[in-house]
Computed example of a mutant assay.
Amino acid sequence: MRYGTGVALCLAAGAIWSLMGLGLRQIEAASVWQILFWRSVGMIPVLLGFMWWTSKGRPLAALRAVGLAGIAGGLGLVVAFAGAIYAFQTTTVANAVLLFAASPFVAAVLGWLILREAVRPSTWIAIAIAVFGMYLMVSDGLQTGAFAGNMAALLSAAGFGIFSVALRWGRVGDMMPVAFLGSIFSLIFAAGVLIFRGEPIPALPQDMAVAFAIGFFVVAMGMVLFTLGSRVVPAAELTLLSLVEVLLGPIWVWLALGETASQNTLIGGGVLLAGVVFNAVLGARRPGNEGVAETS
Rank of each mutant, 00 (worst) to 15 (best):
M1L: 07
T5S: 11
C10I: 13
A15Q: 05
I16Q: 06
L19I: 07
L19D: 03
G23T: 05
L24Q: 10
L24Y: 03
A30H: 06
A30W: 08
A30V: 01
F37Y: 03
R39C: 07
S40C: 03
G42V: 07
V46N: 06
G49E: 07
R58Q: 08
A61P: 10
L63A: 02
R64Y: 06
G70P: 01
A72N: 06
L75T: 00
V78H: 06
F81T: 14
G83Q: 08
A84R: 11
A84C: 11
A87N: 03
T90C: 04
T92S: 13
A96D: 09
V97W: 01
L98K: 04
L99R: 03
P104S: 06
A107V: 09
G111C: 09
A118C: 14
S122M: 05
I125Y: 01
I125H: 08
A128I: 03
A130V: 10
Y135W: 15
D140E: 14
G141C: 09
G141P: 13
G145V: 08
A146S: 15
A146Y: 13
N150K: 00
M151A: 10
A153P: 12
G159F: 03
W169Q: 08
R171C: 00
V172T: 08
M176T: 15
F185Q: 06
F185P: 02
L187M: 14
L194I: 11
I195N: 08
I195P: 00
G198V: 08
A203M: 03
A203C: 04
A203I: 04
A211Q: 02
F212I: 15
A213V: 13
G215T: 10
V218D: 09
V219W: 07
A220I: 12
A220L: 14
G222T: 07
L228V: 15
R231E: 14
L238E: 07
L238Q: 05
L240Y: 02
L241F: 01
S242Y: 11
V253T: 05
W254N: 01
A256Q: 12
G258V: 12
E259Q: 12
N264Y: 15
N264P: 14
T265V: 15
G268M: 13
G269D: 01
V271P: 15
L272E: 01
L273P: 00
A274G: 15
G275L: 05
F278R: 00
A280L: 00
A280H: 01
R286I: 13
R286H: 10
N289S: 13
N289G: 14
G291D: 15
A293S: 12
A293P: 06
E294G: 09
T295I: 14
